[in-house]
């Protein structure tokens, strides 16, 4: 394995994405909606409510949370408890939906796109190994979604601390569970999803078909990732670490199998079934 070539493939793919405004503009909008607009509106709504009855009702909804999660809420006022719970526990899907959506969109087009543009011929005749091409494209598909998520996470942290912080005694976000979620749990889910998406991209006939099929594959994965992420947040720190560890093992196996899906014949579009 020549890691220099892996990096070259990844960097070149990323350069092409940066050149494509029609790609990254929706990506930025998606991140802004999920990490900025929705949290701001929801948290403003909760923290600015003045009707005591509504606040009380909101606070009572926290009963659905596990006892351990409820015990971890530092605030004592109903507004503080509600907004804290919303920020820490209920917006977890934000951290999952955004990177999975973006990574799927990029990954689905990556291999079949080479074939459609005819550039698969160039790669097939190049000295790069198919594993190097696969890993380069995996990295190039992973980075936009994950980078958007990390930047969005920073923005989200700012919004949460500015809006909820005053009600819970100061800045508190990210919590330790969120750090574990973002740095340990989300990446293997992305890698696993991409391993499936790239396998599809190597096998189908067109980018449109790859995106259709990827959508079907990633929808249940988003649900699984969401439930596991939520569990990682609700449970003790060690639970998040354990979920992440299992996810990494599954992702490594899936990536190893995914490498076999790429071949020079598939880059050329002459493999049986293409």
């Amino acid at each position: 394995m020549n890691w220099h070539r892996v990096g070259v493939v990844a960097r070149t793919d990323l350069k092409q994405l940066i050149q494509a405004r029609d790609f990254w503009l929706p990506m930025v909008v998606l991140g802004a909606i999920f990490f900025l607009a929705i949290p701001t509106i929801l948290l403003l709504a909760v923290t600015q409510v003045t009707d005591a009855n509504i606040v009380e009702q909101l606070s009572s909804t926290l009963d659905v949370l596990p006892a351990r999660a409820r015990a971890g809420i530092p605030a004592t006022t109903p507004v503080g408890r509600s907004s804290y719970a919303l920020a820490v526990f209920l917006l977890a899907p934000v951290a999952v939906v955004v990177p999975l959506t973006i990574c799927t969109a990029v990954g689905a087009a990556t291999l079949v796109g080479e074939r459609e543009r005819g550039t698969g011929e160039f790669l097939a005749h190049s000295p790069a190994g198919v594993r190097e091409i696969y890993l380069g494209k995996l990295i190039a598909s992973l980075i936009p979604g994950y980078a958007t998520t990390l930047v969005g996470f920073g923005v989200y942290s700012l919004v949460v601390n500015l809006l909820v912080g005053p009600h819970v005694g100061g800045w508190f976000f990210p919590t330790r569970q969120w750090w574990v979620l973002m740095l340990w749990v989300v990446p293997p889910f992305l890698a696993f999803t991409l391993s499936l998406v790239l396998r599809l991209s190597a096998r189908v006939k067109s980018t449109a078909a790859a995106q259709q099929a990827s959508g079907l594959v990633t929808l249940p994965l988003i649900l699984v990732a969401y439930s596991q992420s939520t569990g990682a947040l609700f449970g003790a720190e060690r639970l998040g670490v354990a979920i992440g560890a299992v996810a990494w093992v599954v992702a490594a196996l899936a990536l190893s199998r995914g490498m076999r899906a790429v071949s020079r014949a598939r880059l050329l579009g002459v493999a049986d079934g293409i």
Binding site: K15, R117, F122
Partner: peptide
């Protein structure tokens, strides 16, 4: 490594 190939379609990356 020792071959150079020009295919029937130029196989270039239009966005680069």
């Amino acid at each position: 490594r020792r071959c150079g190939v020009v295919s029937a379609k130029p196989a270039l990356y239009d966005r680069l």
